[in-house]
């Protein structure tokens, strides 16, 4: 057996062992290992369908309590830095959508206990379009939007 294979085998058995232990200890229940990845929402080809799949509704209300930072012009659509911050109370999730992408839903962040409503990441944009941040606070969804001009698409 080659070294590389042994490593893979070792890694696999260690990982399986850790998960097995976690299940045994009641830390995890099978099927609850990961938060469900909302496949329909991510594969949706329109903003409304993506939001309905993710949040249960496509309705949202613009809010000035959301600060969406993104460049006015992105020369490289493959790497568009984006930061979302909010002063809304009771924020439970922040989601990002690029309206011009074939599959508009980029990412969704679920905030846990003690999390501050702030996330920063880098996303891909296929063409010049609106970048929309959706913030769920209580049972309402608020949004902020910014047009990003994309010089070279990155999808």
């Amino acid at each position: 057996m080659t070294d590389a294979k042994r490593r893979i085998l070792l890694k696999g058995s260690l990982a399986a062992g850790a998960v097995g232990f976690a299940i045994g200890a009641g830390l995890l229940t099978p099927g609850m290992v990961l938060a469900a990845w909302p496949e329909a929402a991510f594969n949706a080809q329109s903003v409304d369908a993506a939001l309905t799949g993710l949040l249960g509704t496509a309705a949202h209300e613009a809010s000035d309590k959301i600060d969406l930072k993104a460049p006015d012009i992105a020369e490289n659509g493959a790497v568009v830095p984006v930061t979302v911050e909010s002063t809304l109370e009771g924020v439970s999730s922040i989601s990002l959508v690029a309206s011009g992408n074939m599959m508009p839903l980029l990412a969704s962040f679920e905030l846990g206990a003690g999390a501050v409503p702030f996330v920063s990441t880098r996303v891909k944009m296929g063409k010049t379009a609106n970048l929309v941040a959706l913030v769920k606070a209580g049972d309402k969804i608020y949004s902020a939007s910014k047009e990003v001009k994309v010089t070279v698409g990155g999808c």
Binding site: A78, L106, L111, C155
Partner: peptide, 14 residues
């Protein structure tokens, strides 16, 4: 304590 769970698509940069 889980402070953040992110769900990503292939639309997040490399």
């Amino acid at each position: 304590r889980t402070v953040l769970t992110a769900l990503w698509s292939g639309g997040v940069s490399k």
